[in-house]
Design a protein around this nucleic acid. Structure first.
Ligand SMILES: [Mn+2]
Ligand SMILES: [Mn+2]
Ligand SMILES: [Zn+2]
Ligand SMILES: [Zn+2]
Lengths: 120, 120
DNA sequence: TATTATGATGTAAAGATTACAACATGGATG
DNA sequence: CATCCATGTTGTAATCTTTACATCATAATA
């Protein structure tokens, strides 16, 4: 655990907005100007392999980072681009895949969020 | 509907392997050498907007194309990179998002497929 | 036939991620 | 303490994927 890794992990725990690598980079660079974006990418790999964070790819463009590792769903608004969490109540892992080793789970819903839907 | 669009759509209906744009391009180029990869990208947009196909981004790297538009889940094998379909039995759209307009739905599971798991 | 609209093509540019070499750091060893 | 060694960081370049755009082809329309 290095200051850089702690910084990225802490940022993701405190900002549950599913930020991009670029967003994290810009935010942390304010405090540590020598920070490199490559370090963010390396750290994301390290933290992902350690099971501390996860990377989700929803919609288009950059990958989004998530410090919440408990299973939950993601709603992607195609208007504002925000990613919202939601609980998975009646959604269970499929039992119908014999021999398959399941390691990760995610539910993606795309559409228009409440804030953007109201602006019509 | 142009010959190129029909070709891409037909390829996706006949090949349920979630191919990449590059794979579709290489396959169709054999029959129509003048085909451009940009046309594949444009056609994917057109077919997606028309609701005939869908694009999924699972794992790393290129986007995967899917001619099956009925809701189903996707299993991504991190070893061989294949994407497998599975049925969604007890998985319903979440009701707990008031005001959100839902348009698309997908379940992503990552892990090791049966074929790759057997090789250990 | 001339016009026009739409789509296809090829190249260039943009955007996102990875590869890699050089540098920094901090602990172990003598 | 001085040296060595392992690991992590940094900056740049390269790669990979996708998009932008100008040009060409095609077919329908007037
Ligand atoms: Mn989340
Ligand atoms: Mn599928
Ligand atoms: Zn929105
Ligand atoms: Zn596999």
């Amino acid at each position: 655990m290095t200051p850089q890794r702690i910084g990225v992990y802490r940022y993701l725990l405190e900002n549950r907005t599913h930020p991009t690598v670029e967003t994290v980079y810009q935010a942390l660079k304010a405090d540590s100007p020598s920070l490199s974006k490559t370090t963010i990418y390396n750290t994301v790999d390290t933290l992902t392999d350690a099971g501390l964070i996860r990377v989700i790819r929803v919609g288009e463009g950059e990958a989004r980072l998530d410090g919440e590792i408990i299973d939950h769903g993601h709603f992607f608004c195609r208007v504002c681009g925000n990613v919202y969490d939601f609980d998975l109540d009646n959604c269970h892992l499929p039992q119908s895949l014999p021999g398959f080793r399941m390691e990760g789970f995610d539910v993606h819903v795309a559409g228009v969020c409440a804030a953007c839907a109201e602006k019509d």
